[in-house]
Nucleic acid binder design. Structure first.
Lengths: 210, 210
DNA sequence: GAATATTGACAGGATTTATTGTCACATACA
DNA sequence: TGTATGTGACAATAAATCCTGTCAATATTC
């Protein structure tokens, strides 16, 4: 109990160091979690099932995550990061007009969603199953989206820049509109073409900016 | 098995008929469900707890509901009905201008939410915990809201009435904006005054209508 | 007042799932 | 090649909760 000699037996295994193996397992679990959560839903998913999908055993699950909730948070964070990166790239490349910026946001967002329906399902739907202890996860992601919208595309909020509160509500409303339409789109199995959805929301964004 | 003699022993008890008692119990369970779901969350709520709150035993739970899911659907339907009625009344009383209609919708909606935070929590947050088998419940409620917005307040969609699809997306977007802002408001414990929220969304609704 | 429907309290089986533990096998290093 | 460590399959414990069944107490009708 007194002197733990750091116990560093760490040795390479299959060409990977201890840390590499561990983070590899973690990634596999995150990927498996994404797949299982999206396929059968958060509630129905079991730790065992996720481990089978990852080709690992429960023991390694608890090596990286404390619980199913914990894993979901990691999976969700992964999704948020991914869509954030896509938005960033698209915004960098876009012209500096309100319309170009708005279109860039919508194109990137809905593009990512359509590219990978499993990812979309976690990002938009399964996250809602978390319950009240973890709703802050969703809320924080939405807030981040909202803040980015305000700072990265100020072109969309030219007016009431004096009234900060009003702008915040407007931004939250726009985020809500985008996310909600996206959710319906996913749940409808992408019935309408992406471009149609984008044009519909573009109307709303541009109307709000004027 | 062949002839069930309808077994109608039905007799009055405490001044109520069989049907009255049963529906009374059902109502008590719905009320208790609302309270418990809103207080500790859908996931954490147990059938037993709800029964205690209702002053009934599990046996009567299963008399009216097949499962916790089933009860929640009833609770949620109750909430939707309630907010629907409030919207109906408010819209009847409002003038026929876009602004009056929009304000009526927002006032009624956020008024109901503020009046009863437990109700609001179920309507806006707990419903998201249902998981993928039951997401249609939420979606249908949103669709209903969206359709009502289009039919009851056509003043808000004066433009592209030719392009039906576009109008639908716009309506869905507005519903998403309203619901999302409402959710944030509830989660923030009504930090801002209601009127401020309403004004912010009014901006958006009126901008979209022009 | 007797018979019977109705209710309320409670117990307990059954099921599900998380979480920890054991053991044989595979891999790397001396 | 031998030994210690990493890994994977699987068992077993533990806990939670659903759902059903029993039984005595209560209310109503005849």
């Amino acid at each position: 109990m007194l002197d733990e000699p750091e116990s560093k037996p760490s040795r390479r295994y299959r060409g990977e160091s201890q840390a590499e193996r561990q983070s590899g397992r973690r990634e596999r679990l995150v990927a498996a979690g994404l797949k299982v959560f999206a396929s059968i839903g958060y509630r129905a998913a079991t730790v065992r099932q996720i481990c089978v999908e990852a080709g690992l055993t429960e023991r390694y699950f608890y090596e990286s995550f404390a619980s199913k909730d914990d894993l979901f948070i990691a999976v969700y964070a992964h999704c948020v990061e991914r869509v954030g990166a896509a938005l960033f790239v698209a915004l960098e490349a876009a012209d500096d007009t309100p319309e170009a910026k708005a279109r860039a946001v919508l194109s990137a967002y809905f593009g990512e969603i359509e590219r990978d329906p499993l990812f979309a399902r976690v990002l938009l739907i399964e996250v809602l199953s978390l319950g009240p202890n973890l709703d802050h996860v969703y809320r924080e992601a939405m807030d981040l989206f909202s803040v980015h919208l305000q700072t990265d595309t100020p072109e969309l909020f030219p007016r009431v820049s004096a009234d900060k509160g009003r702008t915040e509500i407007l931004a939250a409303g726009l985020v809500g509109a985008i996310v909600h339409v996206a959710m319906r789109w996913v749940l409808s199995n992408f019935r309408r073409p992406r471009e149609e959805i984008i044009l519909g929301l573009l109307d709303l964004l541009l109307a709000a900016s004027r």
